[in-house]
């Protein structure tokens, strides 16, 4: 069965101007997202991972045009969202919903829950007025809350319950795609697991597609079908989950995976310690953006921008943007400063 493309992002750029100087002119740009392309197929979960400032949340917001993208095409079921008028875009948001990270900030504290959910249905005219109450109660049950809680205020709920309200609101208009922007990051693990399981059940039940934005690779491994690794506004690697975790190709992905502490005191692992901090996206490094911290970087990495590519030893659909995938894979190239590669708990 051919997979149906639901969302296609092509050459998306999001530059935020920096105003300054005497006349408040634009003096520079923060290149939050710089020319990225990817496709999301119907019914799958694609995750975008990366550290702060990599552009993962900006990507999600640009797709929904919560911030107008600077350049690029965002096709949703064949329609380029960037060409729609504001009112057309608003109507289109019926199909594309978002759940935010902070359930305390994303729900109006002065509205009762039913009003929060009804507002979405009202704007989209999704459900006839007289049926809305019934629908709200049904939605609350779907997300694991009780119908009588519809008349309560958000402050009466815990963080996990509020996130369920956010999910109910997103579901209320029967969307096709839900962008989950760090949707479980603020929750404690025992509650996080509840919400992750809920998201999975809802996906099966309603045939949803998720674009899941997260910094937590444990969560990402659990929920995703495919994963996009971003660094400083660029895609470093795209792959299906299994291939990414078992056979990471990009030096950044490898370092990122090795940096996460493992909840198993017996597991010895080799840690690739990255030097320094993420550079500023205002004047990002030339060539490969990762070259300032990469243990393999050469002259070429400083000058030439690597393209995403697949080599014979990689699985179909697995792409990485590094000049030396092959050399690193074969062992021909070794990390420059081997002392940086330390064994822990040896």
């Amino acid at each position: 069965m051919a997979k149906k493309e639901l969302l296609k992002v092509e050459n998306l750029k999001q530059y935020f101007p920096i105003k300054g100087g005497f006349l408040g002119r634009t003096v520079n740009y923060v290149k939050a997202v710089d020319d990225i392309s990817f496709t999301v197929y119907e019914g799958e979960t694609v995750s975008i991972v990366g550290e702060s400032g990599c552009g993962k949340s900006t990507t999600g917001r640009a797709i929904l045009r919560l911030d107008e993208p600077t350049e690029g095409v965002v096709s949703f079921e064949g329609t380029d969202l960037t060409t729609l008028s504001r009112s057309e875009m608003r109507r289109k948001r019926k199909d594309l919903q978002i759940i935010f990270q902070d359930p305390y900030a994303s729900i109006n504290p002065r509205q009762i829950v039913s009003a929060v959910i009804e507002e979405a249905m009202h704007i989209q005219n999704a459900v006839p007025k007289e049926k809305r109450r019934e629908r709200i109660e049904e939605l609350l049950q779907t997300v694991g809350l009780q119908p009588y809680q519809a008349d309560r205020y958000p402050h009466e709920f815990s963080g996990g319950q509020r996130q369920r309200i956010g999910i109910a609101r997103a579901l209320s208009v029967n969307p096709k795609l839900i962008i989950c922007d760090e949707a479980v990051s603020a929750l404690d693990v025992s509650i996080q697991a509840q919400v992750l399981n809920l998201l999975e059940e809802l996906q099966d039940e309603f045939g949803l597609t998720y674009l899941f934005i997260s910094h937590d690779l444990g969560v990402v491994r659990h929920i995703s079908d495919r994963i996009i690794v971003m660094y400083l506004g660029k895609i470093m690697e795209i792959s299906d989950k299994k291939s990414l975790f078992e056979n990471p190709q990009h030096p950044y992905t490898k370092a990122l995976l090795s940096a996460i502490p493992v909840p198993d005191p017996d597991k010895k692992k080799e840690r690739i310690m990255l030097k320094g901090d993420v550079p500023s996206p205002i004047d990002p490094p030339t060539g490969c953006r990762f070259h300032t911290r990469c243990p393999y970087a050469t002259e070429k990495c400083v000058t030439d921008v690597p393209e995403l590519r697949t080599l014979p030893h990689m699985k179909e659909g697995h792409q990485a943007s590094c000049h030396y995938i092959e050399e690193i894979h074969s062992g021909e190239m070794q990390p420059r400063d081997y002392s940086e590669k330390t064994k822990i708990k040896a």
């Binding site: 693990v189 025992s190 996080q192 697991a193 937590d216 995976l257 198993d264």
Partner: peptide, 9 residues
């Protein structure tokens, strides 16, 4: 707690 924890490894 340990069973709730999504593991990357």
């Amino acid at each position: 707690l340990l069973k709730s924890l999504p593991r990357h490894d």
